[in-house]
Computed example of a mutant assay.
Amino acid sequence: MEWRGDKKLTVYDKTQGVVNVQNYLTKIFGLSKDDCRVINQYMGGGFGSGLRPQYSVFLAVLASLELKRSVRVTLTRQQMFSFGHRPHTLQYVKLGTNPMVPWPPFSTTPSTKPRSLRSTPKTW
């Protein structure tokens, strides 16, 4: 979080939605969009949890505006798992085998000729 003076901020956030974060911060703190820049330098695999503003960016802006200086919020690895919306899911997996097909159905040793999984189509 970079304080640029007179309620002007540059926010560095790991987010998939820089516009979402900017809109959130401008509404909450009464900033103009010109005075609130949001930059995402490194995203990585967000898998959807980076779509919404997180509490860490709110706290960083709050501290910066109160202290009138740049601040940095650092989270531990454990704390990083405490935010983001991940609804409860229950997944079921069924596996089956056919005793007529040898296991594994592929070669684990290299060969010069490619080996087909099944040389002729089978109906099970």
Rank of each mutant, 00 (worst) to 15 (best):
47 F>R: 05
42 Y>G: 04
5 G>Y: 04
16 Q>W: 04
93 V>S: 04
85 H>T: 09
27 K>F: 06
88 H>G: 01
1 M>E: 07
69 R>N: 12
33 K>C: 03
49 S>L: 11
74 T>N: 01
91 Q>L: 09
66 E>D: 03
50 G>N: 12
9 L>C: 04
36 C>H: 07
25 L>F: 08
96 G>L: 12
49 S>K: 12
37 R>Y: 08
115 R>L: 13
82 S>N: 05
97 T>M: 07
90 L>R: 07
61 V>W: 01
79 Q>F: 01
65 L>F: 05
105 P>F: 09
61 V>Y: 00
22 Q>S: 10
4 R>S: 06
103 W>G: 00
82 S>G: 01
12 Y>I: 09
80 M>T: 13
45 G>S: 14
91 Q>S: 10
123 T>Y: 08
120 T>H: 07
102 P>Y: 07
122 K>M: 13
20 N>E: 14
98 N>I: 11
48 G>F: 14
5 G>D: 04
14 K>R: 13
83 F>C: 05
124 W>C: 07
101 V>H: 04
104 P>H: 09
26 T>M: 05
57 V>H: 02
54 Q>D: 12
65 L>Y: 06
102 P>Q: 13
10 T>Q: 09
6 D>Q: 09
101 V>Y: 03
31 L>T: 10
46 G>A: 15
35 D>H: 09
68 K>A: 07
53 P>A: 15
117 L>F: 11
94 K>G: 03
114 P>I: 15
20 N>V: 09
74 T>H: 01
70 S>T: 15
21 V>L: 05
120 T>Q: 08
13 D>R: 02
102 P>F: 06
115 R>Y: 06
90 L>W: 03
101 V>I: 15
123 T>E: 13
31 L>V: 12
65 L>K: 08
97 T>K: 02
115 R>T: 15
20 N>K: 08
14 K>H: 04
119 S>L: 14
73 V>W: 00
15 T>A: 03
71 V>N: 01
80 M>H: 03
81 F>V: 03
95 L>N: 05
119 S>P: 00
86 R>P: 00
3 W>C: 06
36 C>W: 04
104 P>N: 11
76 T>S: 15
21 V>Y: 02
47 F>G: 07
119 S>G: 11
33 K>Y: 12
2 E>Y: 02
69 R>S: 12
98 N>H: 08
24 Y>E: 12
124 W>T: 11
